[in-house]
């Protein structure tokens, strides 16, 4: 039997090109001012769900047969957390828009979108705990360290730049997506080293 692996990078490239095109939609909507207020919020909600569906279905087809039970559970939990995030974010933005909230309620509503994101951290931890394949685990841990390294490097440089008022203060809510991006990008590079 052959152990040759068909090159999958052209299909991955197509997948990422599609994801990049989908990512451009919210910027297009925001800059064109085509939609306003509640319509914009609903459009962003629809876009978010469509984007998630594209990423989950696309990656599961590309990884066909290579998704173990622990990874499947991780992906299901992640999808749930991301949907909860979408709902919490839209609800929070809608409630904050009125500007009528004060005191502890304002704090809770403002921080609500962070709760599902903290859930994602728990989901990541559960995956590492449940993954039976030690090599997979090692790749993920190493990729997380790269994610952490990228986040620390960028935010430290940005922090000093903003101290000197060369650039505005870093948007801290973007630290987590940056970590996820660096984690995801480093994975294929780490795997290549073991081939």
């Amino acid at each position: 039997m052959s152990d040759a692996v068909k090159p999958t990078w052209p299909r991955w490239a197509l997948f990422f090109a599609g994801a990049a095109a989908l990512s451009a939609i919210p910027f297009g909507l925001a800059f064109s001012h085509a939609l306003k207020g509640a319509a914009m919020l609903v459009a962003m909600g629809v876009w978010f769900v469509a984007y998630m569906a594209y990423v989950f279905v696309g990656s599961s087809r590309l990884k066909a047969g290579r998704i173990g039970p622990a990874m499947r559970r991780y992906r299901r939990r992640l999808a749930g957390a991301m949907l909860a995030y979408c709902v919490a974010l839209m609800g929070s933005l809608a409630l904050l828009r009125g500007g009528a909230l004060t005191g502890p309620l304002l704090w809770i509503v403002a921080a609500a979108p962070a709760i599902p994101i903290l859930g994602v951290l728990v989901v990541m931890g559960l995956y590492l705990k449940e993954e039976p394949d030690e090599f997979e685990r090692a790749v993920h841990v190493e990729a997380m360290l790269w994610g952490l390294g990228v986040v620390l490097a960028l935010t430290t440089v940005w922090g000093f730049l903003s101290n000197a008022q060369v650039v505005p203060a870093p948007p801290l809510f973007l630290v987590f997506p940056l970590f996820c991006l660096a984690w995801g990008v480093s994975q294929p590079l780490i795997r290549r080293r073991y081939q």
């Binding site: 039997m1 052959s2 152990d3 290579r66 173990g68 039976p132 394949d133 030690e134 090599f135 997979e136 090692a138 795997r191 080293r193 073991y194 081939q195």
Partner: peptide, 26 residues
């Protein structure tokens, strides 16, 4: 095949590949 060995050891085929190249120590 690598897939057969992966099944018998209950690891992924990528793990077998990484082991065989000598770059990953079990």
């Amino acid at each position: 095949s690598q897939a057969d060995l992966a099944d018998k050891l209950q690891v992924s085929r990528q793990t077998i590949n990484a082991l065989e190249t000598g770059k990953y120590d079990p």
